[in-house]
Nucleic acid binder design. Structure first.
Lengths: 227, 227
DNA sequence: AACTGTATGTGAACAGTTTCACAAACCAAA
DNA sequence: TTTGGTTTGTGAAACTGTTCACATACAGTT
């Protein structure tokens, strides 16, 4: 029940100004801005306006400014935003001013894809542990990672200070494994199991169902709703 | 510019009752209901109330009923919904009363995971084609699929009546490939490239960025917003 | 130092979504 | 056939998120 592992001493974290909860869509867009600002930084762009930021993502300038305004005033009137400064600010807001330890559970199709996913380390996520329950896989090397026995899940998660768990197992064992993960004190789970996952209120789950993503598109195809 | 390939002759498709656009969240939840109803059907459950349907997904009963009411009245007052009937109705709404031809572009980490993804055929999606630009991969067998040369992309997509494309390539070539896909007449794309994708208004894109999914969780971790 | 042009930050208006609350409808039992 | 218990379907209310529009502030120029 320790507060949060390491504590940043130097940084006064940027918090929402008022007490109102920030919407999911705003957080999602902040990620988007952060990603785009990275591209712009590589291009050598120094300054960007909310108009440009919006157009590149098919949003509105007002939307961009409003999103940012929840956390402070980062721009310069008449000029726009400094690409690198804004990127740093957003990184701070969404917690990308540090690295995160990740464990992947399940070395099937999706699990092993994520282990080798080069984008993760680039974005601040280090896959430190990999689990499976298959004796043939345990101990073997998967894309440079030694596969651990899921029977040691709780202990290993604790010992390695894992912040985030990616769950890539079938639906049937998913809830049971999640209970173990929660017992180990992990507060954030990204699940690819196509089933509902139940956790205590202080644990955050994000569920990704690949088929559901496609189903969203099939709905659009059969209904042709004007964008 | 052909309207849509095959046309269902027998089914009078369920459309929203009024002209108002149905919200993304409603469509997403319909998928959720459909998935859950599948589980209930396997369990042998015959009838379900909006209350049960809601509790199993941490939603509210009113939400469930409102979502369904956009498309018609499928329940029986005092009793609830027939599991199998409701599942069929929702399948019809989101276009799961038929099978869909899918092509995967890019046989890297994510691409090859999706090719072997067993959930897809179970949910109505058949991966028919797989592309890459790497000469060492072209012609080889990847999880039972022959890898095609991306240079034949447009022709192959057309010839095989592909409905949906899954894009699993790096950001840099993504937009160019999408333009090809659009030129082939494909109207729906699920992209895993971590960059913005631009398409004409009659083409639907859904972008999945694995790192952004994790970033959503890191925001929650550093801000601990009360759920 | 004053002026011009531009882009931010933000209350207020608007639009969209969720929840509420209840009449209507049905099942089952007597 | 009537009654009691239950759950739907849905307008209206409440809430949340987006867009508007403009005062404010700054950069750059003269």
């Amino acid at each position: 029940m320790g507060e949060s592992g390491q504590q940043s001493a130097s940084i006064e974290r940027l918090k929402p100004q008022d007490k109102r909860r920030i919407s999911d869509s705003t957080i999602h867009r902040l990620s988007l801005y952060h990603r785009l600002l990275g591209e712009l930084e590589s291009d050598g762009t120094k300054t960007v306006s909310s108009k440009q930021l919006a157009e590149l993502q098919r949003l509105t300038p007002a939307q961009v400014r409003k999103d940012l305004s929840f956390f402070g005033a980062f721009g310069t009137r008449g000029l726009g935003y400094s690409v690198s400064d804004l990127r740093k600010k957003i990184a701070e807001i969404i917690g990308l001013d540090r690295r995160w330890n990740v464990a992947v559970i399940g070395v099937g199709n999706i699990g092993s894809a994520l282990i080798g996913f080069k984008e993760f380390p680039n974005r601040g996520f280090d896959v430190k542990l990999v689990f499976d329950n298959d004796q043939r896989k345990i101990g073997s090397n998967h894309k440079g990672m030694r596969v651990s026995d899921i029977r040691n899940l709780k202990e290993d998660l604790k010992a390695n200070q894992i912040d985030l768990v990616i769950l890539a197992v079938p639906s049937s064992p998913a809830q049971k494994i999640v209970d173990e993960v929660v017992a180990a004190g992990v507060k954030a789970i990204l699940s690819f199991a196509p089933t509902h996952i139940d956790v205590p209120p202080d644990v955050y789950v994000r569920s990704e169902d690949m088929s559901m993503e496609l189903e969203y598109l099939t709905y659009a195809l059969v209904n042709n709703p004007g964008k």
